[in-house]
Design a binder for these strands. Sequence first.
DNA 1: GCACCTTGTCCGATATTTCGGACTTCGGTC
DNA 2: GACCGAAGTCCGAAATATCGGACAAGGTGC
Lengths: 256, 256
Amino acid sequence: MTTDGVVEKATGRARGIDRVIGLMEYLHRRRAPARIADIARETGTPRSTMYELVNTLVEARWLEMRSDDGIVYFGPAMHYFGSDYLDSVDLIRKARTEVAHLSERMGETAQFCALEGNKYVVVLNEPGRRMFRISSEVGIKVPIPWTASGRLLVDHMGPSEILGFIPEEDFTLPDGRRIVQEEFLRDIAEARAAGFVRTTALVDRFTTCLAAPVRDAAGCCTATICFVVPADTEAEQQEEMIRLLKDSAARLSVPQ
Amino acid sequence: MTTDGVVEKATGRARGIDRVIGLMEYLHRRRAPARIADIARETGTPRSTMYELVNTLVEARWLEMRSDDGIVYFGPAMHYFGSDYLDSVDLIRKARTEVAHLSERMGETAQFCALEGNKYVVVLNEPGRRMFRISSEVGIKVPIPWTASGRLLVDHMGPSEILGFIPEEDFTLPDGRRIVQEEFLRDIAEARAAGFVRTTALVDRFTTCLAAPVRDAAGCCTATICFVVPADTEAEQQEEMIRLLKDSAARLSVPQ
DNA sequence: GCACCTTGTCCGATATTTCGGACTTCGGTC
DNA sequence: GACCGAAGTCCGAAATATCGGACAAGGTGC
C-alpha cells in the first residue's frame, strides 16, 4: 500500500497538507510509531519533504519523537483535538458515560460503534479488566458483515438495498470463509425483531459480541452499543449484559 | 488574538500546513464550531485560502461541516488519531482506567494532569454524575499556581528554581487576586510532606480540588490524579477521596 | 580498514500553491 | 425595491514550498 489518496500532479509534486494527511493516515493504519524514512517510503513522499514536514508537526505537538531515534507517532495535540470532537457531538458524549458504566459494571470490553460510509467503525472502546484484553481498534474500518453491530446498522434497508450497499468482497472473512448472504439477511431480520444481536466466532474464534441498536427519531439504527466477551461466557451473564445493553441503548435512542 | 505562531514572510504568504496548524489551534482555543470566514479573520488567513484548506480537511474528516451553514469543527479523524496517541503512552493508558474508576466510584469529576512546558494541562477528564458538571477543559494550558496539581508538579525543584520557572504574571488569578509566592512555596512543601494537596476557591469560588502525585523512578512528580468537587463536600467524603487518589497514584507511580 | 547502507541536513531550481480581488448569490433591513 | 453585508467561487500572477540530489556522519559486516 503506498500513496493512497494523495493527489499528485504528473510531476510528483503534492501540497504539504496532502502529504500530512497521508502521513497521519499511514500512522493510524499502522497503529505504531514509525521511522521517518519508512513513512516517506510508504506514503510515496520524498525524504527531504517528509523530514521538513515531520519537524513542523513535532513542533506543533501533532507528532511526538519517540526514543529520539527518528521514531515518531501521534502527539498530545491530536488527543486534545479529538477530545474536543467527542465533547461536541451530543450522542457521543452521552455514549461515553454509558460505555464507561457498562465496562465498569461487567468488567468486560464495551464499545460504541457506527457506520462510516459502507464500513463499520468502533467509535468508543472501553477495555474490560481481563488480562488479555479483547478489543478492536478505534477508528479502523471493518466490513459490515464481520461484526454483530453491522447486522443492526443496516436494518432500515431492504434486502436488495443491503446487498447493494455492502461490497461483495466484504462477505469474505479474514480466514477466507464466506458469509452466506441469505443467512446474513436472516440475522438482520431476527436481530431487529429481538432488539439485540449476538455473534460468536465471527472474526475471532473465541469471541462473542453482544450488541443493541441506538435509534434516531426515524427509528433508523445510527449506532450500536456492545460488549465483546469470551465465547465461553456463562449464558446467564450474557442475558444480564443484553439487558444492560438494551437499557443503555434506550437511553441513547430518541424515544419512538 | 490573531496570527499567533504562523510564520509569515514579509509578503504575508504562509505554508498551507502552517495555516492548518493555526486553524486547528484556533478551534481548540475557541472550543466551539466556527464560521469559515471567522476562522480566516481570527487566524489572519486570506479567505480564499481558508476555504480551500477547509474543503481539503473536511474531505479528510479532520473537520466536519456542522448544520451545513458554513460552520465547521473538529471531525472524527481527530478522535481516531488522539485515541491512537492515548493508547501509545503507557502511563496515560493506565491512568485512563484509574480516572474512570475514581469517577465511577465517587460520582465526581476525576482528572489526570501534567505539565506542558511551564503550564498545567488536564490530559484526561472523566465527568462525575452531577447535573452541573464541574470540569476543566482537556488540553487547555493553565498557569501552574492556579491549580492544586500545580503545587505537586513542581515539587522536585528548589524555591528559586520554581519562581524562575513560573512566569511572574501566572501568580495573578483570573479575578485579579494575587497568589503570594511565599504561600505558594509553603503549599508545595506541605503537599510534598502530606503526599496530597487540597485547594479551595482558587480559580472557581465554589470548587475544591484534591490531588495526589504520580512519581517516576527518580521520585519526580510527572503527573497528578485528582478530584474536582464542590467546596461544601463533607470532610469525611473528602478523606475517602484522598485515600482513593493516593492508591491510584501509587499504582501509576514507579515504586521508589 | 573498507565497502555499504541508513539517517539527517542543505541547497538551488521550478512547478505550484497561495493570495488578492472581482464576481455572484443570498438574505435581511429600511 | 433598493441597499448592504456575508458567504462562497473563480482566476491570474508571483512568491515560495517542494523536490532531487549531493553530502556528512554514523553504524555494521567482513
